[in-house]
Amino acid sequence: MAFLEITGLRKRFGSLEILKGIDLELEKGGFLVLVGPSGCGKSTLLNTIAGLETISEGDIRVDGRAIGDLHPSKRDIAMVFQSYALYPNMTVAGNISFGMEMRGVPVAERKTAIDKVAKVLQITHLLDRKPSQLSGGQRQRVAMGRALVRDPKLFLFDEPLSNLDAKLRVDMRIEIKRLHAATGTSIVYVTHDQIEAMTLATKIAVMRDGEVQQFGTPAEIYNNPTNLFVADFMGSPAMNLLTATIEGTGNDLHVSLARPDAEPLRLPAAQVQSLAPYAGKQVIFGIRPEALTDPDGADRNARQLVEGDCLIDVVEPAGSDTFAVTKLGGKEVVARLRADVRIVPGQNARLAFNLDKAVYFDPQSERRIA
């Protein structure tokens, strides 16, 4: 049985429905990330789990116990907010122990808990400081310590890194991942940053307009997106999504991609059975930048590796990689090449397409077809 179970969850504000039948589950010790654009309902969903918002329909269960009607204080859940919500007049130790003090936990027990959590978070040297004397990353650790010291059944994180600069976000992401591995806690984490989602999660729920578009492991979400929204939202750089025509009949199908000032590029179509109904019609052809590269850098274990000439518009050296921009199917396409590859804007270059990684979508329904 799943540790966290959300079934048929709906949330309405008057006639406006924010959550539209959410079904999710998380194993004990798992890390569930709710990801999606602003306004998709992910924070509202987190707040219903915490008890900060009532639910209109459905059920939430934690460790087999229904919590949908329980007061937040009775749910055994700890939440880390985006704003940290630290008491400015208290020391770090005071902030961490405040909840225990309110519950009447003895002083000696409180000190033991503070020392243990401070050691895990590497903030022992900060215990006598006030929040105003801390950096953003240190404040975030204190907020996490205040949650950890309670030893709850479930931790909720509401965009905890969004107020930090880019480098500190990377550092704190590593800290959160290390903390999860060390403590084995169950976590639900909200973010709009798909890199955070991919690196932290054991399971990801991609949300849009109050609905879960896809739920699965990071690898499933990245490699097998169920629709155009998930394919476009997850990944940096984003997946190339191109208008293509399926040509041929029977088992001899090809994907035709328009090229400027040249004949269309024709690639053999994989998943022929699924694409057969689209012969003579347009589809959306999806391929990620790392599956479109220079021939010497291509995956030699690929079953279907096809090369084609493309006119290069822009070259972007990025240290460990080189990104090249070309045009196919009427859109700009990003290819991810080796760092030392020799490629010149304005000239044709040979690119290798790893068609094992290609996906296809219906232009009208936007659902995956192959």
Rank of each mutant, 00 (worst) to 15 (best):
D59Y: 06
E159K: 05
P106Q: 14
K28Y: 02
K203G: 04
R266W: 01
E290F: 08
P363K: 10
V107N: 03
D209S: 14
P218R: 05
T322V: 15
T326D: 01
V283N: 03
D299N: 15
N301L: 09
V272K: 11
N348K: 15
A197K: 05
K327W: 00
F215I: 09
N354Y: 10
S274Q: 15
I195R: 03
T54Q: 14
I284W: 07
D309V: 01
C40W: 01
L275E: 10
S135F: 08
I343W: 07
S135N: 11
G329Q: 08
K20M: 09
I6F: 04
Q82A: 05
M144C: 09
A231S: 15
E109I: 03
R288V: 10
D299R: 15
G41W: 02
R75P: 10
V142D: 09
G210Y: 06
D252R: 07
F31V: 06
K111D: 15
L45W: 04
Y189A: 07
D340T: 14
G94S: 11
Y87R: 06
T7M: 04
R288A: 08
N224S: 13
V33P: 06
R350W: 01
P160I: 13
M234N: 04
F13C: 09
K153F: 00
M1T: 13
Q140E: 10
L241Q: 12
L241P: 05
L164K: 08
R303G: 15
A2Q: 06
D252N: 14
L9T: 12
V306Q: 05
S162G: 06
I55F: 05
E263W: 00
A244S: 06
N47S: 14
V206M: 07
L242N: 04
